[in-house]
C-alpha cells in the first residue's frame, strides 16, 4: 500500500521551482479562465497551460491512466451538459441552423452548442494541465513549509506535514485491523443492500478510527512537550523565489489580469461561432 504521492517530474524545470509557484499558478489560471465562453480565448490560455505542463517533465507512461480517467469523466460531464442544458440553445441566434437533435431530450444542437461544449471540455483539460504538476512535481515534505510561507497559520501548515506522517501508519493499521477481523471470521457481506454493506464496514472503520484517536492524545502531548505552537517557527527547508519563479508568477498574474479585464469589459462572454 503506497500512500506517498508519486514524484514523477524529478529534475524537470518545474521541479526546480519553488513549490509555492506550483501552488499559485493553478489559482491564477482558474481566475483567468473562469467564466470565459469564447473558445478561441480558452484555446489561447490552453496553449500557455500546455507549455507549462511540458515544463513539468511528467513522463506520459506514468500518467496515462490519470488522463484517461480525467478525460472520460469530463467528456461525460460535457455531453450531459450539452444535452440537459437549455441555456446554450437559448443563446443560439434566432435563425441558426440546427445540425441535429440531441437524443433523449431532443434539444436542438447547433454550432453554438458544439462550440460551447468544446469550450467547457478544453477548459477542464487545461485546468488539469496546470494542476497535475501539483501532484507530481512537489515533494510532499515541501507542502507544509510552502503553505506556511504562503501565509497559512504555522500550526495548520504543520498539520499538512503531520498528515503525511500519519498516512503510512494509518495504512498499516488498516491492514492490521482487517487482518485482526479476518481472524475472527469477518468476511464480506454478500448482500446487495448498500445499507447492509455499509454496516458490515463497521468492524474495520470503527476500531481504526478509535485507535487513531486514542493514540492522537499521546501525539498531542509529545508535540506540546517539544515546544510546538509558538508564534515563530523555523522550517528547516528554506524557500526562496528566484528570478525565474518570479517571472513565471508575473506571467500568469499578467494573463489573469488581462483576462479579468476582458471579462469585465464583456469581451469574452460570447460563444464563438465559426
Amino acid at each position: 500500500m503506497d500512500v506517498t504521492p508519486r514524484y514523477l517530474g524529478a529534475g524537470s524545470f518545474l521541479s526546480r521551482r519553488d513549490p509555492r509557484v506550483l501552488l499559485l499558478v493553478p489559482v491564477l489560471y482558474i481566475v483567468a479562465v473562469a467564466g470565459v465562453d469564447d473558445l478561441r480565448v480558452v484555446l489561447a490560455c490552453t496553449a500557455v497551460a500546455l507549455a507549462y505542463y511540458r515544463a513539468a517533465g511528467i513522463p506520459w507512461r506514468g500518467v496515462r491512466a490519470n488522463w484517461a480517467f480525467m478525460l472520460t469523466l469530463t467528456t461525460l460531464l460535457v455531453l450531459a451538459n450539452s444535452i440537459l442544458t437549455s441555456a446554450v440553445s437559448a443563446q443560439a441566434g434566432p435563425g441558426e441552423q440546427v445540425l441535429f437533435n440531441a437524443p433523449i431530450t431532443h434539444s436542438p444542437v447547433t454550432w453554438t452548442t458544439l462550440s460551447y461544449a468544446a469550450t467547457v471540455l478544453v477548459r477542464y483539460v487545461s485546468l488539469a494541465l496546470v494542476s497535475f504538476p501539483v501532484a507530481f512535481n512537489i515533494a510532499p515534505s515541501d507542502l507544509g513549509v510552502a503553505f506556511a510561507r504562503l501565509g497559512l497559520s504555522q500550526r495548520l501548515a504543520y498539520g499538512v506535514d503531520l498528515t503525511f506522517r500519519f498516512l503510512p501508519s494509518t495504512a498499516a493499521s488498516l491492514r492490521e485491523t482487517v487482518d485482526a477481523q479476518r481472524i475472527r471470521g469477518y468476511e464480506h457481506s454478500r448482500s446487495r443492500n448498500p445499507v447492509r454493506r455499509l454496516l458490515s464496514l463497521r468492524p474495520v472503520v470503527v476500531p481504526l478510527t478509535v485507535n487513531a484517536l486514542i493514540d492522537a492524545e499521546d501525539t498531542v502531548n509529545a508535540m506540546d512537550l517539544r515546544g510546538f505552537g509558538g508564534r515563530h517557527r523555523t522550517w528547516m527547508r528554506d524557500l526562496a523565489f528566484d528570478r525565474t519563479d518570479l517571472l513565471i508568477l508575473a506571467g500568469f498574474s499578467a494573463v489573469a489580469a488581462v483576462m479579468v479585464t476582458a471579462k469585465i469589459l464583456g469581451l469574452t462572454g460570447e460563444v464563438w461561432v465559426p
Binding site: S141, L162, R165, A222, R226, F228, G229, G230, R233, T234
Partner: peptide
Amino acid sequence: VGTTVAAEIAFGPENL
C-alpha cells in the same frame, strides 16, 4: 511527528 528521521529530530529546535 516527522516523516524522516532528520525532520523528526529537527522538530523541537524548529519550534524553538
